[in-house]
Design a protein around this nucleic acid. Structure first.
Length: 300
DNA sequence: GCGTCCAGGTCTACC
DNA sequence: GGTAGACCTGGACGC
């Protein structure tokens, strides 16, 4: 089954798919040759549908069901809405692009259609993945996320493992997460977050639509054990809030490199530079340090 | 092949 | 508020 969905003006699929490392993590499958993305989407009915999305023409995206199955009209609408959310095609970046055009250094951003950061189907999934990026190599992050999908994820109609639901992680054990998933010391953090999500004492899916002031939302995200300033700042970017930089060692190094500065200055120095961009500062920061991905190609 | 060192964020305890 | 040490893993390096 094939159909298309409308994308906003200046939308660039490849820019979104290569906006950061998420497209290289399961359950996403990035097809560099065809510049498309495979993703098993879990519908509200519980049905897991393997979908492939690629660029089409006239601000449209081509959607193909990998399993050869069909969708009802309602399911089709749900798939469209989920894809728009994952690809951030439902986000208004007009004001951001206006600000970017004011600075010669950043005029490439609207021209390139950059700035839409790929996110997962759920904020729960984004948060777990973000915890898995902390204090380790990218190879280990990939291994942890792959293990979570393979060992705890539901299989979609073409056999691809989806990201596990909170219940699946909550029903596992610290020992399993530590040794089998290879989450190490992060195991109790993941378990606690999953169990709190199942109990409803924390509601990550509410974060995406919350009207809470960003500072309060940041504090709530930070209250998850294992989520520090780096992880919370980047989780907030995936919630459409760009007030925090989410600095890690790679970004720190990159900042000093592109600004021809000597390393060793405090993060406050970096934060001060981006204050001029107001509520978009986190997005300007991220696009600054990843600019070459858009020009020279996505690593990996 | 084995042992050692280091990098990578966050937490906790302490000053 | 700032700092030190622990957490865990994988890669680099020396032997």
């Amino acid at each position: 089954m094939k159909f298309s969905i409308q994308a906003p003006e200046h939308f660039d699929l490849w820019s979104t798919l290569t906006s950061h490392g998420w497209s290289m993590l399961p359950p996403f499958t990035l097809d560099r040759e065809h510049r498309s993305l495979g993703i098993p989407l879990t519908l509200s009915s519980g049905r897991s549908v393997p979908v492939n999305v690629s660029s089409s023409s006239n601000h449209h995206l081509g959607v193909r069901l990998d399993s050869g199955a069909t969708l009802s009209a309602r399911e089709k609408a749900e798939v469209s809405a989920l894809l728009k959310s994952v690809l951030r095609a439902d986000e208004d970046l007009g004001e951001f692009y206006l600000e970017a055009r004011r600075h010669p250094r950043y005029r490439w951003i609207p021209k390139r259609g950059a700035g839409r950061l790929l996110r997962s189907q759920s904020a729960f999934e984004d948060t777990v993945k973000m915890i898995c990026t902390t204090n380790c190599s990218w190879a280990l992050t990939t291994a942890m996320v792959r293990n979570l999908c393979d060992r705890l994820g539901e299989r979609s109609e073409n056999g691809v493992a989806a990201f596990p639901a909170p219940e699946a992680i909550a029903d596992s054990s610290e020992k399993f997460l530590r040794k089998e998933i290879r989450a190490g010391y992060r195991a109790p953090y993941l378990l606690e977050f999953a169990r709190a999500s199942v109990r409803g004492t924390i509601e990550p899916e509410q974060w995406r639509t919350s009207n809470m002031p960003t500072e309060e939302l940041f504090a709530e995200v930070r209250s998850v054990k294992g989520v520090g300033p780096y992880a919370a700042g980047n989780i907030l970017k995936l919630l459409g809030r760009y007030d925090y930089l989410g600095i890690d060692s790679w970004c720190r190094k990159k900042f000093f490199e592109i600004h021809n500065e000597i390393r060793g200055k405090k993060d406050r120095h970096i934060e001060k530079y981006y204050e001029q961009f107001g509520r978009w500062r986190g997005l300007f920061f991220w696009l600054d340090v990843t600019k070459e991905w858009h020009a020279d190609g996505f690593p990996g």
